[in-house]
Design a protein around this nucleic acid. Structure first.
Lengths: 132, 132
DNA sequence: CGGCATCCTTCCAGATACTG
DNA sequence: CAGTATCTGGAAGGATGCCG
């Protein structure tokens, strides 16, 4: 089936799905960044605290992790729980809505695992031809 | 199942999937931009020529469309066919590999259609609390 | 520990002009 | 029609310092 059509198969109001009102654009704005998918990926394995996420999402800066978590929290996909201890412990977890996202992301990841070598090979071929 | 594990369930060599070698990062680098998914979406409906893509992916600039198509071609996901006519006609189409990508993307789009309203509502609630 | 505020750099996307 | 080439502004993101 064609991407960008409603579940029932009808097109979006404007007659073409690739307009600003398209829901796909909204999620792309969310998962389109480097980190969101990776953070959700770690959280799909269960609750994690800030420093744990920072370690497991290799290469993420403190700033970006905070920003990513805030956005996810804002969108109702992640909960933030502060335990009033000393030192403070903050735990993050997926909400029910957040958990439903892991399915599609998993599908995407499986695709990448299966096709990465092919993509890299195609890339090399393409580059070789341009160099030669 | 946990994101970032191999299909058979074992972890990646480094012991944690969220490292630079992770295939997920590679596709994220590809589909992570604004346009790739939308272009693939249009092409999932069949062959299209340059100007047609430009019209249907609303808001894309000529530069970005060219760039996106080049990347997709380089990765072996899209073919570019030049018809030596006057004026020139260039047609783009998904390859077999490119078509396999539409499945996962479709899943993601369906998620967005189903959850967009909830996400927007959560966002409003979050913002209201911060304002108040 | 888990942040926020600030500065600073880099990179990318848009606008514009030109071409086979 | 389907591009290429170049310039430039703005935003994303890293580094650093401070705080409850």
């Amino acid at each position: 089936m064609r991407l960008g059509t409603r579940p029932d198969g009808t097109p979006y109001p404007e007659g073409d799905p690739y307009v600003d009102g398209c829901p796909t654009r909204h999620i792309l704005d969310r998962i389109g960044d480097r980190w969101t998918v990776l953070v959700v990926g770690v959280l799909s394995g269960g609750t994690a605290r800030f420093s744990e996420l920072r370690r497991r999402v290799e290469g993420i800066s403190q700033k970006m992790l905070t920003q990513t978590l805030r956005e996810l929290e804002r969108d109702g996909l992640v909960t933030r729980t502060v335990h009033a201890e000393v030192p403070v412990r903050v735990e993050y977890a997926l909400t029910d809505a957040g958990r439903t996202l892991t399915g599609p992301l998993k599908a995407l990841e499986e695709w990448s695992v299966q096709h990465l070598s092919g993509v890299l090979a195609a890339r090399e071929t393409y580059d070789d031809r341009r160099t030669a």
